[in-house]
Amino acid sequence: MSEKVAVSLKINGKEVTLLAAPEQNLLRLLRENGYVEVKCGCEEGDCGTCTVLLDGLSVKSCVTPACACEGREVWTAAGVSRQERIGRLLRDNFAKYGASQCGFCTPGMMVTGVNYLMNNGVPDRQAIRAAISGNLCRCTGYKKIIDAIYHTAQELRRETAGEGML
């Protein structure tokens, strides 16, 4: 492997400096440094379980060059699911609606779901279906994942509407 270089970035809100090889992907960099909640599935950009937020956008970390993340901000599934209010609510709804069965796709689905809710949060099943179409799930049939995101969107919308009335 080629010589490693220092990459400074913010992970889950914390500034860190890590060593990355020029050909390394962000997925490996994260896992090597203890962020093992980012799962390695196919490592070819297909399955989506390694999805993270990079500067606010959900991307597949296995096809993201580690060195390109210098100065950028990364949020993992563990990071977002602790955040009030989207992350926690979505995490709780994943449990409530049975959106996680074997759990392989869950970290990526969480991050993609958070990204959807951050950006418009419309409780629209077809839009949610399209938003998660880059994340493969083998065992839930997607329905309960869509349910969890849908109900989170609905709850958030209800809260916004409630605020409007005050």
């Binding site: 020029p22 050909e23 490592e43 070819e44 950009g45 296995c62 096809v63 993201t64 060059p65 060195c67």
Partner: peptide, 21 residues
């Protein structure tokens, strides 16, 4: 973006090179 090149790297189908990011 890296979405093509990183796959080729993983499949070991990308010879050594200098990435210009």
């Amino acid at each position: 973006g890296g979405t093509d090149l990183m796959v080729r790297l993983h499949l070991k189908r990308l010879p050594e090179c200098v990435f210009i990011n």
